[in-house]
């Protein structure tokens, strides 16, 4: 079922294109989209859990372990585990701000790409000089006919299509 926790937008049919996402205040941070309130909470959660774990572990270990350097290293390890815990907590609380669409092979896209490839003067669509292994590979993928149909010059361009 995924996430039905706080912040899930009410008006978002799953999989629909370009969701307005009106309930979110979206910003792009560190190469992905987040909600500003969720971001604030995730920073607080990360800080409190990780630093808390580290400080508590440091206090306990200092009295248990004899060598201070080793106690400190283990306290850091505990702190790092705290980081992972804070990540898990944030992952459970805040859903991703992404829409994943199961793409079906879009003919319009494919025709556009094939036209671009056919127009490139440095390449050819012709099977002349092509290794039999490559021809077999294209056959298995259902691409052989498609490429051949755009063959030299692309005269009979989108006539044939693979099923």
């Amino acid at each position: 079922m995924g996430h039905r926790t706080l912040g899930t937008p009410a008006s978002s049919p799953p999989g629909s294109a370009a969701l307005p996402a009106s309930d979110y205040d979206l910003v792009e941070v560190w190469n992905d989209v987040v909600d500003t309130r969720h971001l604030l909470w995730s920073v607080i959660i990360g800080a409190v859990i990780s630093v808390g774990t580290f400080l508590i572990a440091e206090r306990i270990l200092a009295s248990v372990v004899d060598t201070p350097a080793i106690a400190k290293a283990y306290a850091m390890l505990a702190g790092v585990l705290g980081c992972i815990v804070s990540g898990v907590v944030s992952a459970l609380l805040f859903p991703p701000k992404r829409v994943v669409i199961e793409s079906t092979n879009d003919d319009a896209w494919r025709d556009q790409i094939m036209r671009d490839l056919a127009e490139n003067p440095n390449t050819t669509m012709s099977e002349r000089d092509l290794d039999p292994a490559v021809i077999r590979e294209m056959e298995e993928l259902g691409l052989r006919k498609l490429f051949a149909s755009y063959g030299d010059g692309g005269a009979n361009a989108p006539a044939q299509r693979k099923e």
């Binding site: 969720h38 971001l39 898990v88 944030s90 992952a91």
Partner: peptide, 24 residues
């Protein structure tokens, strides 16, 4: 990953890491 791990979770982890390593 794209459906279940929010970017906020990753931010949370790295903010924690920065603070713990700095403190340590």
């Amino acid at each position: 990953v794209s459906r279940n791990i929010s970017h906020e979770a990753i931010v949370s982890t790295f903010v924690g890491l920065a603070l713990v390593i700095g403190l340590w």
